[in-house]
């Protein structure tokens, strides 16, 4: 029992210019570990399985409770949040790789800037700054709040984009998360004022129409956001906006 161990295979890449390679790791099992706590242990250990000294593994993480969205990686080949991936649920040796569709920074850390760029392009915010006090926004019914709430839980982890067959360098598809945020801000009574702009942005190349409705996004989303519902709802609104623009602009 005391000899129970955790076996890992981790993809290492010191910088984007050099080729990646695998390293094997082993450490003693303890109860209730997750992938991030194992990576912390490995940083202290700084040795591969065969005792060779190695550098600590680079990865992103922050909240350790699946709310910051920074720790997404491929765990046994599937996108998952490392902090909520419990060791006892995983088949060993546990394979850790960086997300495959984002530029590598180092080891398990990738640059997911494209999501933030996309959120900017659809104006995923509510403009309330001005030269005078705009006063409080309109009251929202409870039903309305309940409709909006699920979309507000997005943690920008990019898992939905990683698993999407349409999200790649050829399509430059915007991905499900940004579409869901368009819905969130278009549902908001104040945010509604910019709804046409957000919908028009999604008509550009790489927009909502690139979705092939494979529905992987909704399967993987760690926050259970109804992404396919968001895509269908926004899809209808985008077509409506396109038809409206055809006759009024």
């Amino acid at each position: 029992m005391a000899d129970k161990t955790i076996q890992l295979k981790i993809k290492r890449q010191p910088n984007p210019e050099v080729a990646a390679y695998w390293e094997d790791f082993e450490l003693p099992w303890r109860p209730n570990m997750n992938v991030i706590s194992v990576l912390m242990e490995l940083a202290m250990l700084a040795k591969t399985k065969d005792g060779k000294p190695t550098t600590p593994i680079t990865y992103d993480s922050n909240c350790l409770e699946e709310v910051c969205g920074s720790c997404a990686m491929l765990i046994n080949g599937k996108a998952h949040m490392a902090c909520s991936a419990l060791i006892d649920d995983l088949e060993q040796p546990i394979k850790l790789e960086p997300l495959s569709k984002f530029p590598i920074v180092r080891d398990l850390a990738v640059d997911r800037k494209v999501l933030f760029e996309n959120l900017k392009r659809v104006k995923a915010w509510i403009p309330i700054d001005g030269t005078y006090d705009l006063g409080p926004g309109p009251r929202q019914s409870e039903a309305q709040q309940n409709e909006e709430y699920p979309y507000s839980r997005c943690i920008s982890c990019t898992c939905c984009m990683e698993v999407c067959p349409q999200f790649n360098e050829d399509t430059g598809f915007v991905g499900a998360a940004t579409i869901a945020q368009v819905l969130l801000f278009n549902l908001n009574p104040t945010g509604q004022m910019q709804a046409p702009e957000r919908l028009r942005a999604l008509m550009g190349d790489g927009g909502i129409h690139e979705c092939g409705y494979a529905q992987n996004c909704v399967e993987i989303c760690p926050k259970d956001i109804p992404l396919t519902k968001a895509i269908a709802t926004v899809g209808r609104a985008v077509v409506g906006q396109a038809v409206k623009d055809l006759f009024t602009t």
Binding site: D111, V114, R121, G172, G204, G206
Partner: peptide, 12 residues
């Protein structure tokens, strides 16, 4: 972004 998926081309 050197490599990787391009952001949305709004309006294009």
């Amino acid at each position: 972004i050197a490599a990787g998926v391009a952001p949305l081309r709004a309006g294009q």
